[in-house]
Amino acid sequence: MPLTPIVLVPGLNCTERAFVEVLPALWPFGSVTIANHRRGGTVTEIARGILAEAPERFALLGFSMGGYIAFEIFRQAPHRIERLCCLATSARPDTPEQTENRERQIALTESGKFASVAKAAFPLVVHSDNVGNERLRAIHLDMAAATGAETYVVQQKAIIARPDSRPMLAGIGCPTAVIVGETDQITGVEAAVEIANTVPGAKLTRVPGAGHLVPLEQPAAVQGALAHWMSL
């Protein structure tokens, strides 16, 4: 099998650290690049910037917010995407309730309480069994600190304004994997099932013992799903 360049797009408050433990599954298939998703004020701008630096053709993985960006990358340049992985993400736009919650988090962050926002998010992004996992908590908080309050606000606003990607799902013709933690409280299992049921031939993997931070919570299971994805 010829090698395929692979581009990974992190999520909100995430750095390359989110992927470190699943990279061994990808290295045998091609070079891996962690995209810079911190440039641009909208999903459209962020996607355009990633495409400008990406290989001519590549496999694309989007994690959480990175999935929203991945859909936009596909929308802008479908001919360049060899395969697509939707990791703990959704094709849906925000609900009014989600937007209201994001606006509260933005207001708290702009008032100097970003550290508190990041701490409060941790129990929501992991499986209930992992709420007391201090290693995972430290990774989560370290990634948030590295991302910073200013980027957090910009990205939350970009997420609020993102388009509905559901109309494009049936037109995705490349090999597609959908991976979700069994108790994902952020983007949700329902949204993952919707993607898998609409993209022709998509493969859905539900990961036990994981919430939204599935590549950090259950890296071995995610490695297996990624290796299968790259073999499709």
Rank of each mutant, 00 (worst) to 15 (best):
G188Y: 08
V154I: 15
I179A: 01
R206A: 11
P5A: 04
P55E: 02
A18F: 09
A158V: 05
V7T: 13
M168P: 04
V178W: 03
L141A: 02
Q98N: 12
A115C: 00
P5L: 03
E45W: 05
L226M: 11
F58W: 01
R135V: 11
P219M: 08
T4E: 10
K119C: 00
S165N: 10
V199C: 08
A91P: 14
L136P: 08
R80C: 11
F122H: 13
Q98G: 13
A54W: 00
V20T: 14
L84E: 06
I81V: 15
H79K: 13
A18V: 15
S111T: 12
P215A: 10
P167R: 05
A144F: 06
Q185V: 02
G148T: 07
T151G: 00
G11T: 07
L169C: 05
L136C: 09
T99M: 07
T109W: 03
S165Y: 04
T198N: 13
P219I: 08
I195N: 01
H212P: 13
E190A: 14
F29S: 14
S128N: 11
A107Y: 06
P123T: 10
T198P: 10
L87G: 05
K119S: 10
E21P: 04
M65Y: 09
H37N: 15
A170I: 03
I139S: 07
T147S: 11
A25T: 05
K113V: 00
A146R: 15
L213C: 14
R135W: 12
A91D: 05
T33A: 12
P200F: 09
E182Y: 01
G188C: 12
L84G: 08
L169D: 04
A18W: 01
P123F: 04
V222L: 09
F114C: 08
V180K: 02
M230Q: 14
G11Y: 00
A118W: 07
V20C: 07
A70E: 07
S64D: 12
Q156S: 00
R166W: 02
S31L: 07
L51S: 06
A149L: 01
A202I: 09
T95A: 13
S165P: 02
S90Y: 09
V207K: 08
P96Q: 06
L169V: 00
H79A: 14
L60A: 06
L60M: 05
D94Q: 11
V180N: 04
G49M: 03
T205K: 10
N13M: 15
N133D: 15
